[in-house]
């Protein structure tokens, strides 16, 4: 990952965490100051979806042209995507406790997100259960496509078909005037970009570590 992108991520997030707490936000009942959680909770989900998208891209690349490199990337993007998703669901539960009254409201989007996380957790269970590395890569790449295909309706379609307290659900598209006040956009979008870049940064470190691990193992074989 390019160094200037890391600097962009750091600058954006310093701005987001300052402006997100200090700038004026819409005054709404029940939500009160917790409306600011939007700056921190929602970027986790945006980050997760984007990272899963890159993961499935590498999975398809693997199936078209198998290589260790694409398999490795596919796994690491899914890994950090899952981390973002877990952070998203935990922050969402804390927020729901004060905005909706209970941490688990049974909201369709909340349930869909939880199922998505379980589907992606199963991806790692699948990988862990296959000894042969080529078989592991091939099967998990196929599963990755199914997991992504399951995520789209679970998070983006089903919640919009039913009514829900979750913004972006119940028929209205994700971003309209009711969901995101335009005064919040100048902080929200930098937050999404900043966190996504941090995700890419962590992935790049993890991929490098895996590459090193494989190189070391190769070295060991050569010495024999």
């Amino acid at each position: 990952m390019k160094n200037w992108l890391k600097i962009v991520a750091v600058v954006l997030l310093i701005y987001v965490h300052t402006a997100g707490l200090l700038l004026d936000v819409p005054r709404l009942n029940i939500l009160n100051e917790t409306i600011r959680a939007l700056y921190f909770h929602v970027p986790m989900w945006f980050g997760m979806v984007l990272l899963f998208l890159i993961s499935v891209y590498h999975a398809i690349r693997y199936l078209r042209n198998p290589s260790i490199e694409t398999d490795r990337k596919s796994v690491e993007y899914a890994n950090i995507g899952l981390l973002f998703g877990i952070l998203g669901i935990v922050t969402g539960m804390l927020w729901a406790n004060y905005a909706w009254g209970t941490p688990w409201h049974g909201d369709p989007k909340q349930n869909g997100a939880a199922i998505t996380l379980l589907v992606y957790l199963a991806y790692f269970v699948l990988r862990g259960s296959i000894e042969n590395s080529e078989q592991r890569a091939r099967l998990s790449a196929v599963y990755n496509i199914f997991a992504f295909a399951a995520m789209v309706p679970l998070i983006f379609i089903i919640p919009r078909l039913t009514s829900s307290m979750h913004p972006g659900s119940g028929g209205n598209p994700g971003f309209n005037m009711y969901d995101l006040d335009s005064s919040m956009r100048p902080v929200f979008y930098p937050a999404v970009i900043g966190w996504f870049l941090v995700g890419l940064w962590i992935v790049s470190i993890r991929v490098k570590v895996k590459e090193l691990e494989e190189k070391i193992l190769d070295l060991h074989d050569e010495n024999k």
């Binding site: 890391k6 750091v10 997030l13 310093i14 965490h17 300052t18 707490l21 200090l22 941090v198 940064w201 962590i202 470190i205």
Partner: peptide
């Protein structure tokens, strides 16, 4: 104070990531 605390944690995290890198 809250902003300061959050920024310290954030910067600490970024510092750690850079070192790891």
């Amino acid at each position: 104070v809250v902003v300061g605390i959050i920024l310290i944690i954030l910067l600490g995290l970024f510092f750690y990531l850079t070192m790891l890198d």
